[in-house]
C-alpha cells in the first residue's frame, strides 16, 4: 500500500518550514505569506462564504496587514482556530497574528505572554431570550437554563454575573454556534448568551427575529483585538499601526473612494504622513512608504469595513455604538501619526 505519502509530506513540510529564527516581520516577508489565525466560522467576523472565500470584519484586518506588509491582500493564509487551539497556534509560530474574537485580559497579556496590539471591536456579553417569556431584565433569570457558546470569557462572566446577583442558573456550554442556536430555538435553553455582536448576528438569521429580544444588561467588557507573540515588538508595531491606520483614516476622512486623490497629496499634513507623502513613517516601521495606502486600498477605512461586514445595512445590523470614532462619542481614538 502507499506507506510513504508521509515521507513526501515530511520532505515538503521540511522545505516549507524554512528558517524562522529572525523577527516575525522578516519571516512573513521571506515567506511572502501572512498566516492569520481566525475563528472557525462566525458570520460577519470570520466565515467562509459559499465560494469558500473567507470574509468578515476580522478577515478584513488580516487582509489589511497582508497588504501593508506584502503589498497584496491575497497573500494571507487563514488558519481557523478553536478556543483551545488558538493560543498554542500563536505561541508555536503556526500563525503570525491572531485576529479572532479574543478578549484582551490581564492574564492573557501577562501570563500567557501575548501582546494585544489594540482593539478592533469593543464588545460585551449580552443575553437573548424569546419574547414570549416576558423577561425584561437579566436579573429576572433566576433558575433559567442558559446556552453558552464557549470560546471567549463567556462562561466566567456568566458565573460572575449570576453570583453577584445571587441568582441561580443552569449552564449548557456548547462548542459550535450552530448547535447552540439549535438548542436555543428548540427551547432546550431559555437564554442564549455570547458577545452582544454575536447575539445580534444570530438573531438576524432567525426566521422571525422579532420574536427574540436582547436584554439591556451587558455584563462584561470584551475588548476584542488582534494579538501577537510577546517579545517581538517590531511585528507588534506593524500590526498595531496597520489597525491604527484603518481607524485614523476614518477619522481623517480618507476612504477607498478618495484614496487615490488623497495619495497625490493634500494640505492636511497628518493625512500626508499617514499616506506616506510626507516624512517617511513607512521606513521607520520597516515597510514601504505607501504601506498605509496599500492597507486602505483593500477594504477602505475602519468605518467602511465595519459597514460592509457588520454594519446596519448588513443582515447582522450592528450599530457603531462604542465602536464609533471618539469624535462621535465612541471609543476609537488612535495616537497621532507623527
Amino acid at each position: 500500500m502507499n506507506n510513504s505519502v508521509f515521507f513526501g509530506a515530511l520532505t515538503v513540510a521540511g522545505l516549507a518550514a524554512g528558517a524562522a529564527a529572525a523577527g516575525t516581520l522578516d519571516d512573513v516577508k521571506a515567506r511572502d505569506k501572512l498566516n492569520c489565525g481566525t475563528n472557525t466560522g462566525l458570520v460577519g467576523f470570520a466565515a467562509p462564504n459559499a465560494n469558500g472565500e473567507w470574509e468578515g470584519f476580522d478577515i478584513a484586518v488580516c487582509r489589511a496587514v497582508a497588504a501593508a506588509v506584502l503589498g497584496d491582500s491575497t497573500k494571507v493564509e487563514f488558519v481557523p482556530t478553536t478556543g483551545k487551539t488558538r493560543f498554542t497556534a500563536l505561541a508555536s509560530g503556526e500563525i503570525d497574528v491572531l485576529v479572532r474574537n479574543t478578549t484582551w485580559t490581564f492574564s492573557r497579556d501577562v501570563d500567557l505572554k501575548f501582546d494585544f496590539v489594540g482593539v478592533n471591536y469593543y464588545d460585551g456579553q449580552g443575553f437573548m431570550v424569546p419574547k414570549e417569556l416576558g423577561v425584561s431584565s437579566a436579573k429576572e433569570l433566576d433558575g433559567a437554563t442558559v446556552c453558552i457558546q464557549t470560546g471567549t470569557t463567556t462562561e466566567l462572566n456568566l458565573a460572575d454575573f449570576f453570583r453577584a446577583n445571587n441568582i441561580s442558573y443552569e449552564p449548557v456550554p456548547i462548542e459550535t454556534e450552530a448547535e447552540a442556536q439549535q438548542q436555543y430555538l428548540s427551547g432546550a435553553c431559555d437564554v442564549y448568551t455570547t458577545d452582544a455582536s454575536g447575539l445580534a448576528a444570530t438573531r438576524a438569521t432567525f426566521d422571525d427575529p422579532s420574536a427574540h429580544v436582547l436584554l439591556p444588561e451587558i455584563i462584561s467588557k470584551e475588548p476584542l483585538g488582534p494579538l501577537v507573540r510577546h517579545g517581538d515588538s517590531e511585528w507588534g508595531d506593524v500590526v498595531r499601526w496597520t489597525l491604527n491606520a484603518l481607524i485614523a483614516a476614518e477619522e481623517l476622512g480618507v476612504t477607498s473612494a478618495n484614496l487615490t486623490e488623497m495619495t497625490a497629496g493634500t494640505n492636511n499634513p497628518e493625512i500626508n504622513r499617514l499616506l506616506g507623502t510626507e516624512d517617511n513613517l513607512g521606513e521607520m516601521i520597516g515597510l514601504s512608504a505607501d504601506w498605509a495606502v496599500k492597507a486602505l486600498s483593500v477594504g477602505g477605512n475602519y468605518g467602511e469595513i465595519f459597514a460592509k461586514n457588520i454594519g446596519e445595512n448588513t443582515p447582522i445590523g450592528l450599530a457603531r455604538g462604542l465602536n464609533a470614532q471618539w469624535t462621535d462619542g465612541g471609543l476609537l481614538y488612535t495616537p497621532p501619526f507623527r
Binding site: 478556543g83 483551545k84 493560543f87 498554542t88 492574564s107 492573557r108 501570563d111 500567557l112 464557549t150 470560546g151 470569557t153 462562561e155 466566567l156 449548557v172 456550554p173 456548547i174 462548542e175 448547535e179 438548542q183
Partner: peptide, 23 residues
C-alpha cells in the same frame, strides 16, 4: 464535548484549558 456534557474532556480539557491557556 459535542453535546455539552461536562465530562473531564469538557472541564479540564475544555473550559479550563480555554481559560488558563495551559495546554
Amino acid at each position: 464535548i459535542a453535546v455539552g456534557y461536562a465530562d473531564i474532556t469538557a472541564t479540564l480539557g475544555g473550559i479550563t484549558l480555554n481559560q488558563t491557556g495551559r495546554a
